[in-house]
Amino acid sequence: MKRFILTLQFLTRITVVKDLPYDQDFKKGIIYFPLVGLVLGLILAIAYKGLIYLFPPVITSSLIIALYVALTGGLHLDGLGDTFDGFYSSRTRERMLEIMKDSRLGTNGVIVIIFSLLLKIFGLTTLPQEKAALALILMPVLGRLAQVYGAFQSKYAREEGLGNIYIDKVTGLEVLSATVIASIIALLDWSSLAFIPVLWIFSILFKAHSKKVIDGMTGDTLGALCELTEVLYVLFLLGLVSLNIY
């Protein structure tokens, strides 16, 4: 339980217990990433259920995504922006890593963050209300499962940094455990189980691209992978709706 709370507080702004003792095996808490997503998802779904009675769907979705950003402190959005600023700067690997570490946000970062938020907001607005509530529960779960996959068998592209806690330190058993946990949660919506193989493949492709560009993964790219997976999940659901499968 202590390791789960540490992981929850590391990935979000939710504080359960202050001044928890240091855990030398903190990295093993990566198996709880999907459960952290579940906590976030339940908060979002409950808020959505309340707000949808007060506001139009597009306003409700906007407020829910704003709440999501507040709960995470924009941690993964920051990684998304930094990753796109660095990856698409047309600079050397060393300069890309410097750009990604820079606290200032560039044009590429602003554009991808705006489009990511808009796709989530309008995607949720387009989904039927009951499906949107389920999507809000599962979206953070699947996004964080992608981070587990992203850290597995990856090289850390920097000499030091927060991402080094997990990258290339995840075991096959931990990946399996996280996948089982996420799959059990995904039983809330059977159609979403089919997305897990999709996000596995997407994670592999993303890692390959990151390796080609900066020779590995960083904390920023893990954040980017989470955000992109969540957008992909919303698009996946919209596709199922269009095909009258969902």
Rank of each mutant, 00 (worst) to 15 (best):
G239K: 03
V36R: 12
G219H: 02
T107F: 09
L6D: 13
A146Y: 14
A66S: 09
A66V: 05
L145D: 12
L188W: 07
R13V: 01
P197F: 12
P128D: 06
L243N: 09
G81V: 09
D102N: 08
L97V: 00
L142E: 13
D19E: 15
T107A: 14
N244V: 09
V112M: 00
R3E: 03
W190A: 13
R95N: 05
A146P: 11
S191F: 03
L162K: 13
F87Q: 02
I43T: 15
L162N: 03
M96V: 01
R13T: 05
K207M: 12
P128M: 02
A135Y: 00
V170T: 15
F115M: 14
L222G: 05
L105E: 09
G163S: 01
M217R: 07
L173F: 12
T83E: 07
M139H: 03
A66M: 08
L138Q: 08
I52V: 08
P197S: 13
Q153N: 15
G216K: 05
V148R: 07
L136W: 02
V148S: 09
A47P: 09
L35D: 07
F4I: 15
L35G: 07
L136S: 05
I5P: 05
L63V: 13
I185C: 14
A224G: 04
L237I: 03
I14A: 04
L63A: 11
T126I: 11
Y149M: 04
I181R: 12
T218N: 01
V17G: 07
I99D: 04
M100I: 06
Y22H: 13
A194W: 05
V175T: 15
L142W: 06
S210K: 12
Q129L: 11
L75K: 03
K120E: 12
G106W: 06
P21K: 06
F4L: 06
V180C: 09
G41V: 06
V36A: 10
A133F: 03
I196C: 14
G37Y: 03
L119G: 09
E130V: 12
A178Y: 10
L193Y: 07
Y68H: 08
L162M: 11
P140A: 11
L225G: 02
A45M: 05
Y48R: 05
L145T: 06
T12L: 09
A66W: 00
L38E: 10
D19P: 08
T83K: 04
R158D: 06
F26N: 09
P128T: 00
Y88C: 03
A186P: 13
I111D: 10
T15E: 13
A133W: 00
P57S: 12
Y246E: 04
L117H: 12
E94H: 07
L240Q: 08
F115H: 05
A208Q: 10
G73D: 11
D82M: 03
L142S: 06
S177L: 14
P34N: 09
V175E: 07
L127Q: 03
T171F: 00
L240S: 00
G239W: 03
Y156N: 15
A151F: 10
V17Q: 14
A208R: 15
Q147G: 07
F10R: 12
L232E: 04
G161N: 10
A146E: 10
A157P: 01
A146C: 11
P140N: 14
S90P: 05
T126L: 13
D78V: 01
R91K: 15
T218Y: 00
E130L: 05
A186K: 14
I113S: 15
T126W: 02
I31K: 10
V141K: 04
Q153L: 13
I114H: 08
L232R: 11
